[in-house]
Amino acid sequence: MASEYLKWKYRDVHPEQTVELTPRQRRANWWYYHKWHVLLGVGLLALGVYLGARVLGIGQVLPDYQVAYVASAALPEDTAAALENALAELGTDCNGDGQVVVRLNQYVTGGGSGEEAVYAYAGSTKLMADLNACDSYFFLLEDPEAFQEAYHILRRLDGSLPEETEQDYESCYLSWSECQALRALPLGEYTEEVLNQKIHGDSQERLASLFVARRGFWTERTCSYSEECDALWTVITEGSEQ
């Protein structure tokens, strides 16, 4: 009886008919359920391409020469840019990309306490990474004796390598003022903001108290384009007493 009653009750009810979707509706339906998978896959692919390009140097301007500036305070941006451009005029296109690029790596290692100490620690860490990777060949130093005593990485001015126990650090660097080619560089003036005040100065005067040196290598591992770097060292130290 119950089944007959149900048949009678639902006599006007018809099963739903399958709706045939258009191609556009099928694509919209697929995208609705899979869009996050697609976006995640595209993101991972883009990240892989970016990292691969970074490793291979694709799309990047790679430096022909690198200079490590190590001091208690950073150089003004104007001075740093002028120095890079002026040194590039003295160098050659080592990597064959059609341009000469000098990169000044600034490592601020001085500092007292608090925030200054944090920046000093970060600068020292980046400097160690530079030294381990043999990135910088040239060094622009505020305190070359302390630097050589700490890292023992500089070559003598005559090109030879000092012994680890040697204390004759003066044979490893030249003052900026001793290098006629450096003193003659057209570096112009700089402007920097200190305590909300703009300070103007001469870039040559800012660099006059620094010292220049070059990297020594005790193993077969060297900086990129070491022969070209040797040639540029000869140019910037020509006429100085070594």
Rank of each mutant, 00 (worst) to 15 (best):
T191H: 15
R221S: 09
H200D: 05
G216K: 00
H200N: 08
G201E: 15
R206I: 06
G216V: 00
G216N: 03
A213V: 14
A213S: 13
T191F: 11
R215L: 06
F211S: 05
T191V: 10
C223G: 11
S209I: 02
R215C: 15
G216Y: 07
I199K: 12
D202Q: 08
V194W: 00
E193L: 07
T222S: 12
Q197L: 01
N196G: 05
T219H: 04
V194T: 12
Y225L: 12
A208N: 08
T219N: 06
V194Q: 09
T191R: 13
F211R: 13
R221N: 04
C229F: 07
E192N: 15
E205T: 03
L210R: 11
Q197T: 04
A213N: 09
V212S: 09
G216C: 02
T222K: 01
A213Y: 11
Q204A: 12
E193A: 07
A213L: 04
R206E: 10
S209N: 01
T219V: 03
H200C: 08
R206M: 10
L195N: 04
F211H: 14
W218D: 09
K198F: 11
S209C: 05
L210Y: 10
S203K: 00
Q204S: 10
R206D: 08
Y225G: 04
E205G: 07
A208E: 14
C223H: 05
V212Y: 08
K198V: 09
A208Y: 08
R221H: 05
F211C: 11
S226H: 05
K198N: 09
E205Q: 07
R215F: 13
E220S: 10
V212Q: 13
N196D: 04
E227G: 02
T191E: 10
A213C: 03
F211K: 15
Q197W: 04
S226K: 01
T219R: 10
W218K: 12
S209E: 12
V212T: 02
E228D: 15
H200V: 05
R214W: 05
E228M: 13
L207H: 03
T222P: 01
K198H: 14
F211N: 15
F211G: 04
A213T: 02
F217G: 11
T222N: 01
T219W: 01
V212D: 11
Y225P: 01
E193V: 14
S226N: 11
R215G: 04
T219I: 13
R206S: 04
V212W: 05
V194M: 05
E205D: 09
R215P: 02
S203M: 10
R221A: 06
E227V: 10
F211M: 10
E228P: 00
Y225Q: 14
E193R: 15
R214Y: 13
E192A: 07
L207F: 05
L207W: 05
N196R: 13
S203Y: 14
E193I: 15
H200W: 00
E220T: 03
E227W: 01
S226T: 12
H200M: 10
K198Q: 08
E227P: 00
R221Q: 12
S226L: 04
A213E: 11
E205C: 08
